[in-house]
Design a binder for these strands. Structure first.
Lengths: 407, 407
DNA sequence: TGTATATGTTTCCATTATAAATTAATTTTA
DNA sequence: TAAAATTAATTTATAATGGAAACATATACA
């Protein structure tokens, strides 16, 4: 479904309609055959036939009957959420977070293991494997109901081969995640960049459900984004789309770890916020942070958040400043991609109350047109589970989407 | 073809295959039925049937027979370029450029009229109308062969309604181009932003033919871009995608006409180049420009180009500096969209020899990964006709692309 | 109780791709 | 030079769907 021109075939036709009906049911929670036909403009028999297949595959079940609208009661159809399960792995910089969910992305089991700095590739992979085993062996689902494993990995990822090309926080390169997990568990494995996974998660189950074009920005120890176009993840030519952490917004700005100057990441990432606060404090500014942190070098974004919640003016202003920088980044993104909505996630978004408004204000001030000014900027709905649920969604896409060569 | 989920139908199936075959013929120049079947993986009868229809519609014709490969000679098929004609209008800031082309985008007639500053909406529309009439009345094509008019308009455009919402260089708003021209000429009219039209033109007939994801950057009196994803123009939610002129690359940079600071446009547009050169000259730098321009205020980008061609070190350095700034903009774009190729067009690209290399160098230096470093950066192939040919392509897309509700 | 109405299914039909066989036109080769 | 092999294109028959219309079913409401 990704080529310039696509061949039409019976399989494609069927698959398109199957996908259309399945997603209509999913989006509506429960819906009758007649209503599906109306919404999709498919004819009643077409809907009936495909629904029959979905019922046989047990992906869909008939629920109790709905209320009549002056005639025969409709039979409501719902996704059979507990027919299949998926595993999602959020391999963040500090921990590996494994979840198992049903088709509604409701979590039925989870397990988290911390990551020690300086871990080797083998240990990292083993940790992931044992975490996944832990979840599978919970017995919350029978093994043959589990249809795949999705992995959200920070850093640069080669999607096709499922390789983590560069994981800056682990200082590892070329980790063969897909190959390893497929050998171990004998099921489909999909690997994706964490920000993109978050974007997919928000699109399917979070604050992006009703939107065609959106960008999900992950503000954590780094800054990344996932770009969704027409409801699908956009990867670009080399799976690099969305790497906005090193977008230059300040030619003469501070030096970044990447060697350049003025990257967005040097202004709005968690560490950047802490560093700036430490610098400002060392200049003599007043704040309760002085009491909270023994040493200014140990200052973290979390501390600033805590202080802000206690009403610390200094910390609140630091977040507002961060919001303004973030707003500049968003403006660049809005003018280039013009999404309908931007979703902010990642650790820093916990302080969303303090930085969101100033980011919105910056966008309003700098945007070129009225519609750009009104680009919706909201917080992630899935919060700390966003990446893991995004990882799960990678597998769900396989089940729910159109494949020209589907059976 | 733009919704998240699409219904499958016989019409769609047929239309997809028609489009696939038509574009296969177009891309190959000439090709046999058997070869099409091999390439598209359609069966020979399917290809034969659709080709028969295309022959009847006279969009395709049978050419002389090709050379045998050890069996019956293949009958070569080619696009019947002179069966239909299209009109393309490039409504730039300084002139209206009207062309008529055949299906190969070969220009059969052209006409250009200058635009006076302070023109009224009515005069502008009348100018366009008379320009188009001039071309139609040339007799190079019979009226019923002309299938539509495409308009590439600078500024912000509402595609659906064909309205120029804001044309900064004309100081006009809400010009109803589509409505006016459709009433006057009774044929399909498509209106598009100039940079996006250029991008489409390059995709179909220029340096973007073989690429799925590309961005075409128009560096002229302003800076704009057209984003092509999967071979199709990407518009974003409000037809604003690609407005990179006001991307912020320098928080504390010079003030832009938009009211903000450090927009890309204040560093790399034609006027920006001239302004910066004038400022540097006023500081006493040496250059033959001093003799060429009577007054430093009258300095133009063209003059710098002329001087550079004469070997003027100062002017060459100005372009190289511009290239570095442009490179920063491209890096931001590469990290967000990761296109395979970036095409530079617009007036400033005439000085491409002087700025392209430093732009490439900047990208190589700042890009995050090897593949990003190697993003191809090339000049427009269509040059000054890019926007007009892009405008023509807007109509061509209608003829060549898939429509679910096509006959 | 009957009529209108909404839901869902069946029956028949239309459209199109697909597979296999056939015809056609050449080259290769014995 | 004639037969065999090869490639191209068409014909014929078949299969896989979606689409239209009629039908059956269940319910509300007058």
């Amino acid at each position: 479904m990704n080529t310039k021109y696509m061949a039409g075939s019976f399989k494609l036709m069927k698959s398109l309609n199957r996908s259309l009906i399945l997603n209509t049911i999913r989006e509506h929670g429960q819906i009758s055959r007649a209503e599906i036909a109306k919404l999709t403009k498919l004819t009643p028999p077409t809907v009936g036939n495909i629904v029959k297949e979905l019922l046989e595959a047990e992906i869909v079940i008939e629920q109790s009957q709905g209320v009549s609208k002056g005639g025969r009661k409709p039979t409501m159809l719902v996704i059979n959420a507990r027919s299949f399960f998926m595993i999602g792995v959020d391999a963040g910089p500090a921990s590996v977070h494994v979840i198992m969910t049903d088709l509604n992305a409701d979590i039925v089991q989870m397990h988290e293991v911390p990551l020690k700095p300086g871990i080797t590739e083998a240990d990292f992979l083993n940790l992931m494997i044992s975490g996944i085993k832990e979840v599978i062996n919970s017995g919350k689902a029978s093994t043959d109901q589990i249809i795949g494993i999705g992995v959200a990995m920070h850093g640069i990822v080669d999607i096709e081969n499922g390789i983590s090309l560069f994981a800056p926080n682990l200082q590892l390169r070329d980790i063969p995640i897909k190959e390893t997990l497929e050998k171990e568990f004998a099921m489909i494995v999909k690997v994706e960049n964490d920000a993109r996974a978050m974007a997919l998660g928000e699109t399917w189950f979070g604050n992006g459900k009703d939107v065609d074009h959106l960008v999900c920005v992950n503000v954590a120890s780094g800054v990344g984004a996932g770009v969704v176009i027409n409801g699908k993840l956009f990867h670009g030519e080399h799976d690099l789309a969305g790497e906005i952490g090193h977008m230059c917004i300040d030619l003469n700005g501070p030096r970044c770890t990447c060697g350049n100057y003025g990257c967005l990441q040097t202004h709005v990432s968690g560490p950047a916020i802490a560093d700036r606060a430490a610098r400002d404090l060392s200049l003599g500014k007043e704040s309760i942070l002085r009491d909270m942190a023994g040493n200014l070098n140990e200052l973290t974004g979390e501390m600033l958040h805590e202080a802000a919640q206690k009403g610390d003016r200094f910390s609140i202003e630091q977040f507002e400043l961060t919001g303004r920088y973030l707003g500049i980044g968003l403006i660049n993104l809005i003018h280039l991609l013009n999404p309908k909505r931007i979703i902010i996630g990642g650790g820093v978004s916990l302080a969303g109350d303090y930085l969101l408004e100033s980011a919105r204000q910056t966008v309003k001030t700098r945007a070129l047109t009225e519609s750009a000014k009104n680009t919706e900027i909201v917080l992630s709905k899935l919060g700390k589970n966003a990446a893991a649920i995004g990882a799960v969604s990678l597998i769900l896409v396989e089940l729910f989407s159109t494949k020209a060569n589907q059976s």
